[in-house]
Design a protein around this nucleic acid. Structure first.
Length: 275
DNA sequence: ATATTCCCCTGGAAGC
DNA sequence: TGCTTCCAGGGGAATA
């Protein structure tokens, strides 16, 4: 479900609502792809204060004041709800934390592709196995056309597959890979190694532009994604190719096509994206 | 080492 | 109305 803009939006909301609160107790209600037994989770979290919440790739990092923390991933359908304690489990509620202000922070996830991992104070977040192999943050200043060109060199994968590989560039998933390629007029099938310097410049800029615009719009709600307060992301209205096969290209009126790459749908305009 | 394929799981939409 | 099939913002393990 969530890519960088959605995770960023959720992090900002969590940060506003949870920073400074203490965890009274924690409970795992049912398992996720990676999760922690209730007894261990409760022992780990109990009495700790939430100092800071930030994002790395599509992971949410909960920093406690004792330097330990939690590493959360939303998978495809994960979401959070924070509301007054009512003692009633929500549908698909997987983990919950009881907080010092009387509220309950719930991690819900229908498909259970999400994950929860512990990061002890003895281990810095960057060295945690979940985060150690991750690639560059695309909104960082050193993510340039030149950097992307070097990444593409020697790689005989389609550029779209490379963009979605979190060990190279993080945060770009299926929606924004498709949109960035459309904006830079590059075919999703083009082999990474065959991109020119200029195309890499355009693509790096397109990735930054589309992610920035999506963050400003609060992300893209296609079906499941909602912010912590339940609100939808409005960037879905600005999507130009994602999910639009059979509809007309906004630039040239050619019919947008769908193809499958590495098991995921790609959407593109066969006329605009010939490069 | 690096690149596709399959699987994890649930629910909504579309087709018959 | 109901059953079946396909599809979904991710990632990791098992294959080629």
């Amino acid at each position: 479900m969530p890519e960088l803009p959605e995770v960023q939006t959720i992090c900002q909301s969590l940060s506003r609502q949870l920073t400074g609160l203490r965890i009274e107790s924690a409970q795992q209600i049912s398992k996720l792809r990676k999760s922690v037994a209730t007894a261990d989770l409760d022992l780990f979290c109990r009495g700790k204060t939430i100092a800071q919440i930030c994002r790395r790739a599509k992971y949410i990092l909960i920093h406690f004041s004792d330097q330990s923390g939690l590493i959360l991933h939303l998978g495809m359908t994960g979401c959070f709800i924070i509301n007054p304690e009512d003692g009633i489990a929500l549908k698909h509620e997987r983990v919950c934390w009881h907080l010092s202000d009387g509220s309950r922070w719930r991690f819900c996830d229908a498909r259970r592709f999400g994950s929860l991992q512990l990061c002890p104070s003895s281990l810095s977040f960057e060295k945690h196995p979940a985060l150690i192999g991750l690639g560059i943050e695309p909104l960082q200043e050193n993510f340039t056309g030149q950097y992307l060109k070097e990444l593409c060199q020697l790689r005989k994968v389609p550029i779209k597959t490379l963009l979605m590989d979190q060990s190279h560039v993080v945060g770009v998933g299926n929606i924004y890979a498709n949109e960035a390629l459309f904006r830079s007029r590059i075919s999703p099938r083009k082999l990474a190694t065959r991109l020119s310097k200029v195309q890499c410049e355009h693509l790096a800029n397109a990735i930054q532009d589309v992610l920035t615009a999506a963050i400003a719009a609060g992300g893209s709600t296609i079906r499941d994604y909602h912010d912590v307060d339940g609100s939808e992301g409005h960037f879905s209205l600005q999507l130009q190719v994602y999910g639009r096969s059979g509809l007309l290209c906004p630039n040239c009126n050619t019919v947008i096509r769908r193809l499958v790459q590495a098991g995921r749908s790609s959407f593109y305009c066969p006329h605009c994206q010939r490069g």
